[in-house]
């Protein structure tokens, strides 16, 4: 403590540490397990037709829809998921562990079942959706809102879980210190809590976005599939598999490239 540190705490101290040699082969196995299938996909790709395939309207429509819906779903998850994570991490109430289990339910539920559940809840004959439909004529399924809803349902837990664990690992005493200085709860949340968990929020948002981008089961079950309206990349890939395997591979590669293009800089910037 007496040494004057100019280095940021938690900075690069760890990356210079010597790793136990025994970890390397295991890490390599893990990496190869992910990389080899991707390489196999690349190797099967129809490189000569790739440009014409990926500029077809069905692809560009699906890509646009995927990016927009995954991004909006991430935004929605941030707005309501971060407060939920905060409640789970900081509030004490009976049945909290039960609520925590509920939150991660969409992660264990087969997405198709999740989609059906959404249908029974928010469809126009659904638990909640019926009243909305009767009052306003608004139907959530078969529209981009349905896609966003399905994406949010499946992907939000990734954000909530990440941010909650982030909140648990930051020192809550800083919040107490701020309170002794007269800061209101809202100011503490804004000025202390949020900046402290920013890395976890970014990590959670990235996970959430990636999961939403790849979402298939809940989307198709809840929102349906129509080019330009509800057909996202994974749906297009699935249907292409039925008719044209090469196109399906090309679409998958596009999905991979787009997600890497977004996630790699994000990780570099925020997740040292």
């Amino acid at each position: 403590m007496s040494a004057r540190r100019t280095r940021r705490p938690g900075g690069n101290a760890a990356s210079g540490a010597r790793l136990p040699v025994v970890l390397w082969p295991f890490a390599a196995v893990a990496l190869l397990f992910v990389v080899v299938p991707v390489l196999a996909l690349v190797q099967r790709a129809p490189w000569s037709d790739l440009t014409s395939l990926v500029t077809e309207p069905i692809v560009t429509d699906a890509l646009r829809l995927s990016i927009v819906s995954a991004s909006v779903a991430t935004l929605v998850s941030l707005v309501v998921g971060v407060p939920l994570a905060w409640v789970l991490a900081r509030a004490t109430f009976t049945g909290r562990s039960f609520v925590r289990a509920l939150v991660i339910l969409p992660m264990v539920l087969p997405p198709v079942v999740g989609g059906a559940a959404l249908l029974f809840a928010f469809g126009r004959r659904g638990l909640v959706g019926e009243a909305v439909y009767d009052q306003t004529g608004f139907v959530l399924p078969f529209s981009i809102w349905g896609v966003i809803a399905a994406n949010t349902f499946v992907a939000m837990p990734f954000l909530v879980v990440t941010v909650e664990s982030g909140l648990r690992s930051v020192d809550a005493r800083y919040e107490e210190a701020a309170a002794t200085l007269g800061a209101s709860r809202w100011m503490i949340f804004r000025r202390i809590t949020l900046p402290n968990v920013a890395p976890a929020i970014v990590a959670g948002a990235a996970l959430c976005w990636a999961r939403a981008l790849g979402e298939f089961g809940a989307t198709v079950t809840f929102a349906g599939n129509l080019q330009g309206r509800t057909q996202t990349m994974p749906l297009a890939v699935f249907l292409a598999l039925e008719s044209n395997r090469e196109a399906a591979i090309a679409l998958s590669l596009v999905l991979i490239v787009v997600s890497l293009a977004v996630l790699v800089p994000l990780r570099d910037r925020w997740l040292r």
Partner: peptide, 8 residues
């Protein structure tokens, strides 16, 4: 806490 005049 935030309304007490107590510094820590």
């Amino acid at each position: 806490t935030e309304e007490r005049s107590v510094g820590v």
